[in-house]
């Protein structure tokens, strides 16, 4: 069946015509709303490239149905850029050269935003880095991303 889900994306209510109830949030964001900052990587929940926030918590938009987030607030990389936390994280990535081809970067930024929102700058760094292991990067070797995460954590503190 096709029905129109009702949720907000980047603080704006989306006005969608009816979409299939089997549609993934990833496809709704990219192809219906034109928000191409959210990337499709593996489409199997393994790479983290499609990470977005649903009610401030990171989720994999490739494994989430658009209709399952009805009534929720969805934030993508485009919306996060307008927020203070998002701007600080992105600046940290730029300062540390933590982005090369850039395909994984939005996913990392969203995952980091979720962690900073969830526990602020508290908690041990080891656990913090472990919590970023769900995002894959094939360029950087992760060292610069770890530095950027640490820098963002300090900037938000």
């Amino acid at each position: 069946m096709t029905t129109a889900p009702s949720f907000t994306v980047n603080a704006t209510s989306v006005d969608l015509s009816p979409i299939p109830e089997s549609e993934r949030l990833l496809d709704t964001l990219r192809w219906r709303l034109g928000l191409k900052g959210t990337k499709e990587g593996c489409r199997t929940g393994n790479c983290g490239a499609c990470t977005v926030l649903v009610d401030r918590a990171s989720v994999l938009s490739c494994l989430t149905l658009a209709h399952e987030v009805a009534g929720s607030e969805v934030t993508t990389i485009e919306g996060l850029a307008a927020e203070d936390v998002g701007a600080r994280i992105m600046q940290s990535f730029a300062d540390e050269g933590a982005s090369q081809c850039g395909y994984c970067t939005p996913g990392f930024v969203m995952a980091l935003a979720s962690l900073l929102h969830e526990r602020g700058a508290a908690g041990d760094l080891a656990g913090f880095e472990e919590d970023l292991q769900g995002n894959l990067c094939r360029c950087t070797g992760y060292v610069s991303i770890r530095r950027a995460a640490q820098r963002a954590r300090e900037a938000v503190r």
Partner: peptide, 8 residues
């Protein structure tokens, strides 16, 4: 999985 997976 990962944190994002465990959120769901």
């Amino acid at each position: 999985g990962s944190v994002a997976l465990r959120h769901r």
